[in-house]
Amino acid sequence: MNQARIWLVVKPTVGLPLFLGTVLVISLLIHGAVLTHTTWMPAFFQGHAKTP
């Protein structure tokens, strides 16, 4: 593993929440953007999807 030695400099208790938290925040932002910039996704979440 190439970058393993990062954990010699960054404490895992700080670095891991930071890393995973960033992933979480970015994904929430992107999904939020999709939610506000399309018409079908808000409609879907209002329950307008056709059930089979």
Binding site: M1, R5, I6, W7, L8
Partner: peptide
């Protein structure tokens, strides 16, 4: 950490 510990964590 030791280098091996860091490697295992990274894995």
């Amino acid at each position: 950490l030791t280098i091996r510990e860091a490697e295992e964590l990274h894995k």
